[in-house]
Design a protein around this nucleic acid. Sequence first.
DNA 1: AAGTAGCATTCATGGAATAGAAGTGCTAAT
DNA 2: ATTAGCACTTCTATTCCATGAATGCTACTT
Lengths: 330, 330
Amino acid sequence: MLTGRQEKLLKLIVENYIKTVKPVSSKALSSKLKCSSATIRNEMAALENLGFIEKTHISSGRVPSDLGYRYYVDNIMVPRELNGEDMLKLKQIFSNNALVLSDAINKSMEIVSELTNYTAIVLGSSSSDNKIAKIEVVPIADNKMIAIIITDKGHVENRNVSIPNNVSKSEVKQTIDIISKLIVGVPLNEVSSVLEFEVKPVIDRYVKEHEALYNAFYSAFSDFAPKPNIRMSGTTNLLMSPEFDDASKIRKILNKFDDKDIIRNIKEDGDGVKTYIGSENNIDEDISVIKTYFYKDGEEGTIALIGPKRMEYDKAEALLNYIKENIGKE
Amino acid sequence: MLTGRQEKLLKLIVENYIKTVKPVSSKALSSKLKCSSATIRNEMAALENLGFIEKTHISSGRVPSDLGYRYYVDNIMVPRELNGEDMLKLKQIFSNNALVLSDAINKSMEIVSELTNYTAIVLGSSSSDNKIAKIEVVPIADNKMIAIIITDKGHVENRNVSIPNNVSKSEVKQTIDIISKLIVGVPLNEVSSVLEFEVKPVIDRYVKEHEALYNAFYSAFSDFAPKPNIRMSGTTNLLMSPEFDDASKIRKILNKFDDKDIIRNIKEDGDGVKTYIGSENNIDEDISVIKTYFYKDGEEGTIALIGPKRMEYDKAEALLNYIKENIGKE
DNA sequence: AAGTAGCATTCATGGAATAGAAGTGCTAAT
DNA sequence: ATTAGCACTTCTATTCCATGAATGCTACTT
């Protein structure tokens, strides 16, 4: 579809623009393409007709269109190896065995946002194949306890439980025993229904102050269902890019970043690292998103990197690939 | 020091400017102060000599100086009652007994940032008077366990432990027992030294594969010392203020928000809600910070609200006061 | 047929000039 | 002590250039 020279030209335009953030002129490329600027102008006109490049005004140089970037990413760009220094920084995190997986992912994405100057996002949650392995209830004051659940995949959460006044210690213990017996092995997202339909009847029968006690534990245990949590780092990075040079552009992006619905929507599934350029993503047409799904040991989610459209796609891809691999290994 | 009329004038200037974000002219106030604009100009000149107001250029209207805001906050502003609607929203959070204190604080500050359109910050950590009440180690795979500590104040944290290969179950159990026995009652910030100087010798003596095992547990337990964590919400809010109308101003603030050292520095101690106007704070001269320290049940920290200098100090103060009170009650 | 030189054309950019509006400070009168 | 009035200053927006950096196209060359 594109001649060899056109492809070469597109490559030069994209890479030049990524570097300089200025529309690329025919003259600037004539030396690199061993032909005159007039010839390049002709080729540029062809590329523009095909929709790969655009002008910012009638006599301006050329800028890659979304389609142009897309062609570049799919057909021209050579996947880059991660450089040793960057790899080392990330390796250190994943080789720290004490870190829980989700912490390792968060930290590594922080590093990535520093390395790239883009914005990193982790949408993570415990997956619903987490089953309760153990619950632990620890008294910390006369009428206050801490309820802790631990899942078979190693996910841990805790809540307060306020014990109603006129309840004896043995009743509390009895209640905990009943809950514990019935709840172990239950997937996280079914906990609240098991509490309601299996635990409650038993407590009703055996424990005296059942109503108040049941409510106290129910409110503590009922919201353990996997909820995605959002972690962003380097929000600022993206906005330091020279294309975001006026307040309204910056604010537009900031508002999108603030909108949890939009961010949650970044969620990706399927294998592989995918790129969404400009209008291809549903966040903002001035940015590109590169992201991938991960699952490991009961934690799942999406890691994403958001940069300007003129992002270094090869580097971003290499970084996400590396992290995805390491999540798999952990 | 200020005559009654001057005080009245300053009040009008501050409140007018807070509302309109435009320098206040003498003419605009003449109706409200039942005298002519010329008289007001004379009074303004006096206020300017005293340093309470400023001009943006030689023939402009007046804008409050930092000193002017300070005088307004200290001597003119009447402390506001929190309005019922806002109070209700916050009350709902603090009356949710299942929420751990730190979560309740974080959520309430999120609400506050929405109610004010300022940026809310919570710098929280478990305080060093947390003593370990219990440790729990749960196996989740052949060579992987989850270590959980619970403090007497109800603070919970967890880490991974990778069990070295050639180690028997009984040795692991023995090790956990030793650690558990020696570590209960130890304040969080002393855990790592107790591990090193009290636990290690015992393990050395009794457990066979001591070196590898000790290291595995040491790396899991050693970093439980109270570390402040930072929680910001509504970062964007502040930057939507009309005074931040160009990219460089927005970026300046964003950079400061990104600098963890600067944010951690917001830390406040002592009682009461304090206001730092413009140059009084060491974040940025274009903003004001209002903040207060909190301590309750082993959690301590600072909650802060950052707004433009022309913030509604009375409202901000009322909100922080209310939250501080509720933390006390919880 | 492909490449190129050359030129008219277009538009962005930045500076200078201008006019109007919004305020102030000051003087003189009340 | 207050105020009316006016000269003065600065901001803002607009217009008008001149310049420079590109392009597209035509006609010429290889």
